[in-house]
């Protein structure tokens, strides 16, 4: 479903991705771990073309993302993206946030898009927040609205860029629960996260990155109980205390 082949990327003199290879099968949930500055977010952002690549190629559902002939707007409809800082549209209500892209991009009728929006928000436990503006919502509620906004386009894959890092501790669970629900539903997901418990419980595969490279990958059981790469060992010692 998603395939990265020898993807390299630099910001100025700093090489953030060094020939990264990764394949994610349909329905698979991959959690990407690693210290900050490892290139995790950049890797996620090249998958939906928010960042360009210097070399290599990324395929989503068989379509090359970084090819001039690819209609990136069409391809992005298949790729939901959830940001660390939510990035909800502050001038629109929760429902309008969710319904906007289906109306504008898919030319869906307003009533249909809103009916779908209400359904999605309700499924995420936000049926009473439909008419609220982002500023009136808690962080956890905002992130769930953001998830609903991404799902409204019926994506084939969902990318999460540290979706709980900007949340207060007591709000993390509601967002992780929403993501678990998605994983159970068979959604293909790549999640950059620092939530070790979530990775252990939900991930089909864990990928460990550092300094622009994937250093280790495997099942959560194998990775957490017997990591092999020295930097992965060091990282786990730090985060698991």
């Amino acid at each position: 479903m998603i395939k990265l082949e020898r993807v390299s990327k630099s910001f100025g003199h700093l090489q953030v991705l060094k020939s990264v290879n990764l394949e994610v099968k349909s329905g698979e949930v991959v959690v990407v771990l690693g210290p900050s500055g490892a290139g995790k977010s950049t890797m996620l952002r090249v998958v939906n073309g928010l960042e360009t690549v210097d070399s290599g190629q990324v395929w989503v559902d068989g379509v090359p993302v970084h090819d001039k002939r690819t209609n990136i707007n069409l391809l992005r409809q298949k790729i939901g993206f959830v940001f660390q800082h939510f990035e909800l549209y502050p001038h629109l209500t929760a429902l309008q946030n969710v319904a906007l892209a289906p109306i504008v991009v898919k030319r869906m009728k307003k009533e249909d898009a809103e009916a779908k929006g209400v359904q999605l928000l309700s499924a995420l436990g936000l049926s009473d927040k439909v008419g609220s503006f982002p500023a009136q919502l808690s962080g956890g509620q905002r992130q769930r609205v953001a998830i609903a906004r991404a799902l409204a386009m019926d994506p084939k894959v969902m990318l999460f860029d540290e979706p709980t890092s900007a949340l207060d501790p007591e709000m993390i669970k509601e967002v992780l629960d929403a993501m678990k629900l998605l994983a159970k539903g068979g959604m293909t997901m790549i999640i950059v996260s620092h939530e070790m418990g979530f990775a252990r419980e939900v991930a089909d595969r864990v990928v460990f990155m550092d300094k622009g490279m994937i250093l280790e990958e495997g099942t959560p059981e194998a990775f957490f109980s017997s990591p092999t790469h020295p930097r992965a060992v060091e990282f786990l010692e730090k985060v698991l205390r």
Binding site: L50, R76, I79, G80, E87, Y89, P90, L100, V104, V105
Partner: peptide, 27 residues
């Protein structure tokens, strides 16, 4: 308007002009 707003709009498949019209300019 923060760059993230444009990225969020583009990530849902909007073109640059659609994102401008519905997300950036109203704000």
């Amino acid at each position: 308007i923060s760059r993230g707003q444009m990225e969020a709009a583009r990530s849902t498949g909007m073109t640059y002009l659609q994102a401008m019209r519905y997300v950036i300019l109203p704000q």
